[in-house]
Amino acid sequence: MDLKTRLQTYLTAIARERDPYMATAGHFFVQEYIRQQFAQWGSVEIHTFEAGGKTCQNLILNLPAEAKRQKRNLPPILIGAHYDGVPGTVAADDNATGVAVLLELASKFAAQPAKYPLRLVAFDMEEYGLLGSADYAALLREQQQPLRLMLSLEMLGYKDSTPGSQSYPPPLEKFYPNTGDFIALIGNLRTIPDLFSMSRSIRQAGISSQWLPVPNRGLIVRQTRLSDHAPFWDAGYPAIMVTDTAFMRNPHYHKPSDAIATLDLDFLAGVCAGLEIAIRRL
């Protein structure tokens, strides 16, 4: 199977109603699907946390660094994507695309390790206020666990090549293109060298990419905090959100129409291939 077909297979399994309260069967199905996929590559750690009287789960897969670097005790790169969805939608872009790429990266880096150890995390309860990532970031902070970088994969599959299809919080529209055909990387100031190199790697894979460094944990432009990287910013970690910019481009955001048919799978496959190259070069 080629990359696009593999991603489509993942999407078909994940894109279903999976709100943790309103669609418990779908939510459980997707949780189990991720667990089974991860389990092919190593033992799956489950990080449980309580939210709204419910026990929730982040699913974690640790992958070692390449053999010659294993003794160095390098800090891991954490790659996360949330698997919950809002009620009333199969949430294909938000965030079946992020989870599909997470699973594909797991299989790629299990077969051929990166320079750094990787920790792949499927976060729960993002749509209820980043609860899964907040709980996990707090735990890592408490354990004094260093991270080389945290990457949040947040909506990766919607592209619109029509001029005027991309909007921004002001004043960013003065500096960035108004066509929604790129993938955006948004990081705190510590990640500027990574933003630059990752963007370049993604462009080399044939996908247009824009990057934005934000000061002060993104508090000035609140829209930059709308994913699982934000709790890692707050905990002082270097973190980047990889995104198609959600509602600033995708008209189906949080609607029943957020379906696989609205996605651009060639774009998604390009983003996935570009991310693999970018992570290998870190």
Rank of each mutant, 00 (worst) to 15 (best):
S227N: 08
R249I: 06
T55S: 11
K71H: 10
F38M: 09
D84M: 02
N216R: 13
L226W: 15
S165F: 04
A138R: 12
P238S: 05
N178H: 14
S165H: 05
A100S: 14
G274I: 03
A273G: 02
S197I: 00
D93Q: 10
L105V: 01
L282A: 03
N58V: 02
A230Q: 10
I60F: 13
D124C: 01
Q37K: 03
W233M: 04
V221L: 15
A122H: 00
A65I: 03
L131D: 05
D2G: 13
Y158D: 14
A96N: 10
L139E: 14
G129M: 04
L268S: 00
I60P: 08
R72F: 05
E142F: 08
L7N: 09
N58H: 10
G85Y: 07
R203P: 01
A106N: 07
L78A: 11
Y168K: 03
G52Y: 09
L219A: 13
Y168R: 04
G164F: 08
V101A: 08
L149R: 01
S133I: 01
D94T: 00
I277R: 15
A205Y: 12
P76C: 03
R281Y: 04
F267L: 06
F175L: 14
R18H: 07
N95P: 07
P64R: 08
R16N: 11
R190A: 15
F109K: 01
P163S: 14
G206R: 12
L102Q: 10
Q37Y: 02
Q36A: 12
L103Y: 01
I77C: 00
P251C: 03
S201P: 02
R141F: 06
P113D: 12
A184V: 09
N188S: 07
I60H: 11
T179K: 14
E173V: 09
P163T: 10
S197N: 06
T9Q: 15
S107G: 14
A91W: 05
L61G: 03
R72S: 06
G157L: 04
S209T: 13
Y128K: 11
K4F: 06
A91G: 10
S133W: 00
L74W: 01
G187W: 03
Y237A: 04
L74Q: 04
G187S: 06
L151C: 08
Y128D: 10
Q204G: 05
V101L: 07
T191C: 13
Q204F: 07
H82M: 11
V44S: 11
M248S: 06
E126G: 12
H252D: 11
V121A: 09
R190N: 12
K68C: 07
R225S: 06
V44K: 12
L139V: 01
D94L: 01
M248F: 15
P193E: 08
P64K: 11
E154P: 00
G218I: 02
H47Y: 15
L226G: 13
A235F: 03
T224V: 12
R72V: 00
P163M: 08
L151M: 11
V99L: 05
R200Q: 14
K255P: 01
S107P: 02
D234I: 01
D84W: 05
P87L: 06
S257V: 01
I202Y: 12
Y21V: 14
F49G: 05
A81M: 10
L282R: 07
A230E: 07
V221C: 13
A273S: 12
G85P: 09
T55Y: 03
I192A: 13
A100M: 07
E126D: 13
A137W: 02
A137Y: 00
P87M: 08
E45A: 13
F196C: 06
L11C: 06
A122S: 06
